[in-house]
Nucleic acid binder design. Structure first.
Length: 537
RNA sequence: GCCCCCGUAGCUUAAUGGAUAAAGUAUCUGCCUUCUAAGCAGAUGAUAAAGGUUCGAUUCCUUUCGGGGGCACCA
């Protein structure tokens, strides 16, 4: 709304400037409107006066004053802002009015867990593909990072109005499957080790290596990976097997399509894709000299399936940083198929395992890895999820399992869960004293909520839509746990300052409703992260 | 050699180019006869180094140092 107001004013200012012969080459997208929790700087603030200063050849302060006047003059805005202030060299700070806060609080009470649902997705369909670890062994602590990231991002996008599917791509073809086959047959070329290999050995005896590998992969997915994923709180809509691409001849069809578009050539006995035409640094092989298709050929066919058969409007792949080199080839393929811009790839930097002060390289081949099962067993789903979610995708992660175990009792996730449990405890007392916390929303006397801690709490609650919107746009999921911590802190402060049950009827009811709203927003935030909201702790 | 990510408090991490750099943890100090002290309040403590752009740089650019990843007819 603020942006619209400024834009309207800007347009007239630009027209005016042009008349005066000034070239107002200004980009509104650069405008910052940010939220502040500070009492001094207001609830929202904008830097636009600084950005306009040059074009307008005026001091930022003067521009700020002008804008302030314009915005205050706009009729519907009067109720929303209690005051607008110019501070510093020209920041414009907006203070929300109580009327605005209470009307938003009512909205939360009406919409409950649907509060914060957005329509930015416009019902379009989207797929998030994540983990997709090779089916050659149990999931590792490293895989866990992609797991929560993808799951949480999918939930956020769903809440912002996208029809969202979660998918796991099972690479049950290629060299690693042969290696797995050799391993479960325990022949000379065995590479993978571990107890699970021993268990599979008994079942796979007598098969040929590749068949044994594929059968073992299927077993590992069904018996090991699916169970771990479920314990981690992830529910996939689809498990897509790479071998299906081969059986259904999707790869040949995709290559034939590219050939028809004259994007294929032969060189050195191999079949190449002219990916350089689509922003790649070099062309890529699709069919090797020996007639086998490359991983990229399969991946292009897989994405063709995503966009043309499943008709997704968008696909997001959550990959490990080691797949950095694969992005240009695949993006070129997606572009060549006519789906430029529909694929986003998020790279997650590596998780390194620390033990006794030393970094350990994880390797399924050597049987050296910490499994996600170990982690779940020692710290539990909620702590593990929160631990990974707090970090941004770009940040490397040093993971010390012993430390995680030791710190699990001090994990900030409990701080958030505790806030929820505390609210539930008060609501339980209501039942005991036969108080009905629910009241007709129209009858609520929200005006009685005027303690700074009450207002601060409401201001946190109404951030949820913005958190969802921002995260759906930039995929920075660590914003969600950060918000949850802020929200819990505001609640705990409210709890310190404002007793609920001892107050007189009207204030008690108003505060109980503030609690109901807080409970719903907290629950919903926890749900987005896939973390349990306990009634008791 | 080229490309990508990172370097923030003792430790693990936040922070659209904005104002006093934010949390947890660790250390120290207060607060339970009152709805759950897994809480609240306070103290200590940080942008790897050097230049540049900008009214303003943790953020953008260059260089140096340090850590991780990638540069396949492997997946």
């Amino acid at each position: 709304m603020l942006k619209e107001t400024i834009k309207t004013y800007l347009i007239s200012a630009i027209i005016q400037a042009k008349k005066e012969g000034v070239s107002p080459d200004f980009d509104l997208e650069r405008t910052e409107i940010e939220t502040k929790n500070s009492i001094i700087y207001g609830d929202y603030s904008t830097n636009i006066a600084f950005l306009l200063a040059k074009e307008a050849k005026k001091q930022p302060k003067a521009i700020g004053a002008l804008l302030k006047e314009k915005i205050e003059g706009l009729d519907p805005k009067k109720d929303i802002f209690e005051k607008i202030e110019i501070r510093g060299e020209g920041f414009i700070n907006f203070f929300l009015s109580k009327t605005a806060l209470f009307s938003e609080l009512k909205k939360i009470l009406e919409e409950k867990e649907k509060y914060g649902n957005l329509k930015t997705g416009k019902g379009r369909s989207l797929q998030v593909e994540f983990i997709s670890a090779n089916p050659t062994g149990p999931l590792t602590v490293g895989n866990a990072r992609g797991g929560v990231f993808g799951d949480c991002l999918a939930s956020i996008l769903e809440k912002s109005g996208w029809k969202t599917e979660r998918e796991y791509y099972v690479n049950d073809c290629g060299k690693q499957i042969l290696a797995l086959g050799n391993s479960v047959l325990k022949n000379k070329e065995a590479v993978y080790r571990g107890d699970y290999i021993e268990a599979l050995y008994r079942e796979m005896k007598g098969k040929n290596s590749y068949k044994a590998g594929q059968a073992a992969a299927k077993k590992i997915i069904e018996k090991i990976i699916k169970r771990t994923v479920k314990n981690f709180g992830i529910e996939y809509d689809n498990w897509f097997f790479e071998s299906d691409l081969h059986y259904s001849r999707k790869i040949e069809k995709a290559i034939a399509y590219l050939e028809k578009k004259n994007l294929i050539y032969k060189k050195d006995g191999a079949v190449w894709f002219k990916s350089k035409k689509f922003g790649d640094i070099r062309d890529r092989v699709l069919i090797k000299k020996d007639g086998e298709k490359t991983y990229l050929a399969g991946d292009i066919a897989y994405h063709r399936y995503k966009f043309e058969e499943k008709k997704f409007d968008k696909a997001i792949n959550i990959w490990g940083a080691d797949h950095y080199g694969d992005i240009p080839g695949l993006q070129a393929g997606v572009w060549a198929l006519g789906h430029k811009g529909k694929l986003d790839v998020v790279l997650l930097q590596f998780v390194t395992i620390f033990e006794k002060g030393k970094t350990k390289k994880m390797s399924k081949r050597k049987g050296v890895f910490k499994t996600l099962d170990d982690l779940l067993e020692s710290v539990g789903k909620d702590v593990a999820r929160f631990f990974f979610l707090e970090r941004s995708a770009n940040a490397h992660l040093n993971f010390d399992l012993d430390l995680a175990r030791e710190q699990s009792e001090k994990n900030p996730v409990y701080y958030i869960q505790y806030a929820h449990a505390r609210i539930c405890a008060i609501l339980r007392k209501c039942a005991k004293f036969q108080i009905n916390p629910k009241s007709k929303i129209q009858n609520l006397k929200l005006k009685l909520l005027k303690h700074p801690s009450e207002l601060a709490l409401i201001k946190q609650l109404i951030r949820l839509p913005e958190i969802v919107g921002d995260t759906a746009r930039d995929y920075q999921v660590q914003r969600v746990p950060q918000y949850a911590l802020d929200l819990a802190a505001s609640f705990h402060q409210f709890y310190r300052d404002c007793n609920v049950l001892k107050e007189k009827e009207d204030l008690k009811t108003a505060r109980l409703n503030l609690l109901l709203a807080t409970k719903d927003v907290l629950r919903e935030t926890l749900r987005l992260m896939g973390i349990f909201a306990p009634k008791k702790m």
